[in-house]
Amino acid sequence: MATNRLNKLDKIFNQATNSKQIHQAVLLVENTSGDFSFNKGYGGMEVDSPMILASITKLFTTTCIFALQEQGKLSLDDQVTKYFDRTMLSGLHVYRGQENSYDLTLSELLFQTSGLPDVFEEGKASAKNRVVDEDFYINFDESVAWVKKLKPHFLPRTTKKAYYSDINFDMLGEIITKVNSSTLAEAYKQFIFEPLSLSNTYLPENEEDFVPNVYHRNKIIHRPKFIMSSGASGGCITTARELMIFIKAFFGGKLFSKDILDKLPLHNKLQASMGPIYYGSGYMRIPLSQLITMYTGKGELMGHSGSSGSFAFYYPFKDLYFVGDVNQLANASLPIRLTMKLAMMTK
């Protein structure tokens, strides 16, 4: 049975890397105990190759929020006015003439239910379009000012609505630094890197910190300034091997109590452009019994993907973890589709 599963994983990975969109890739699959393991690289990428985590970084930010909550240093019910000046917040969330900026809570940031717009994806002048052409640095205050120029999508706490936006996690990152009296990089080290002995995972802080290249279609681009400015919403670097250690710890209760995730069951479907993805307490959930799979899948994927092609998901139905990277900025659906195929084939 194990041999059959290995053959299926190998076949799916080979099919994926035959795509003209993928020039480099790496895949690592394990069960919780690690007695089942499969890994394969393509185009020079291996399990110890540096990779851009992009939005999987949000799982690190979530970990810090939960750890600080366990220490009693913050609450998900806290309003953002506890951590930010009202002048800074003013105009951030104005929906149909109503100012909602001061009513936002940490929970709404974490669950992507604030309704705030996303500067990375929205508009012709989006950060995603700009970063294809040039490398640039944008600080937190500039990100907030950029968000204020866009329109929120709904009122905070609107039932059954979620909207994926990086600013939610950028704000959580700022809150972590204030509550922990440290930089975000120091908080990551304290709550994640050191407890898990991750020596090749880091948040770039200066030009000396290595940032890998990423493909945009057939073009190789290098964007260290943008990665450094992405911080809590998407700035981390790691390897597939260390990402596997982390994702097992995240869902395994090694970094914070598993009860936290069990007590926060609320997940809402994201905007249509995000496909079949639900979002909740800092991570994605992708049910496999949906139209996209012709309702033939079982269970769900839990974890996160990144716009650079990275992915880290747990499939409880088969006790399997999928991590890796397809290193392609032009198609954010690639890692999602690959992981779904991997899960569907491991029967």
Rank of each mutant, 00 (worst) to 15 (best):
Y314F: 15
D319W: 09
E134W: 09
K124E: 14
F111A: 09
M45A: 11
N168D: 14
G324D: 05
K58L: 07
V26H: 05
A125G: 07
G234P: 00
R241N: 13
A330V: 04
S307T: 12
G303Q: 05
G306E: 08
M340Y: 05
R157C: 08
A2N: 13
T158G: 07
G275V: 06
D10R: 12
G91C: 10
L116D: 01
R157I: 01
N218V: 01
L334E: 02
P204R: 12
H222W: 14
V144H: 03
S333Q: 15
P212E: 11
D166G: 10
A54C: 06
S75P: 03
F169W: 01
D166R: 05
I138L: 14
L74S: 07
I220W: 10
P195Q: 07
F246G: 02
N31H: 06
Y314N: 02
D170S: 11
M228W: 10
D262C: 02
K148T: 02
Y278R: 10
I247Y: 06
A185Q: 10
D170Q: 13
E122M: 07
C236G: 02
G34V: 07
V214R: 01
C64L: 07
M284S: 12
D85R: 08
S101T: 04
Q79I: 02
L76A: 02
R130L: 12
V144R: 00
Y137C: 06
I292F: 12
